[in-house]
Computed example of a mutant assay.
Amino acid sequence: MKHELIFLGKTKDSFISAGIDNYASRLKHYTKVSTRTLKEKKSAGNPDISLEGRQLLEAVPAGWFIVALDSRGGQFTSEKFATVISGWEQRGVKGVCYLIGGPTGISEEVVARADLCLSLSKMTFTHDMVRLLLMEQVYRAYTIKAGEKYHK
């Protein structure tokens, strides 16, 4: 199964980009993972959440499972997230796209279309930080599944 994180706009801080790249490199031992950065859509100079939502959805390959990152989504422990990923693999899910909105969030259209709406915390993070936290949690899930000591 392949995992793809789709973002809007470039990651601004180099330390976050380096962390994302680090976990992506580590994940190659367990699964295929990639990131894709889409250009933010603006209307009258401001982010247009509706246009961005359509852009995110259009980027999802046909037949892939969609996970929308949103503060209103469900939360999992790391162990439960590992179990969820195992379930996707057992069901033969070809790929999972994690959709991360821009600074103004993610559109209702994306949330409605998602197969899973996921929140990483009750706290608020920058959309750039969410990219890194999600990549780390996908990596952690695979180390849990493999019974490795990283999780402890």
Rank of each mutant, 00 (worst) to 15 (best):
L27Y: 03
L38M: 10
L38W: 04
S25L: 11
K149N: 14
I100A: 00
L116C: 08
G73M: 05
K122N: 14
S121T: 08
A68Y: 02
V60E: 01
F81Y: 10
G9M: 04
S14G: 11
A82E: 10
G95V: 01
E79F: 12
T126H: 06
R26W: 10
S78W: 03
N46M: 13
S50Y: 07
A114E: 00
E52C: 07
S78V: 07
R91Q: 10
L120D: 01
V138N: 02
K149D: 11
V93E: 08
R26G: 02
K41A: 07
S25K: 15
G102T: 04
V67L: 05
L38H: 01
D13L: 13
L133A: 09
D70S: 12
E148A: 11
F76M: 12
D13W: 09
K32D: 15
N22R: 13
K80H: 15
R140M: 14
H127A: 09
S86K: 15
Q137A: 06
E148C: 08
L51E: 05
S107E: 03
V60T: 05
T31A: 08
L133P: 00
K32F: 05
A18W: 07
Q90A: 13
L132N: 04
L8I: 09
Q55D: 13
P47L: 06
S86N: 14
P47C: 08
I85Q: 03
G45E: 09
K28A: 12
L116A: 02
G19M: 07
H127G: 01
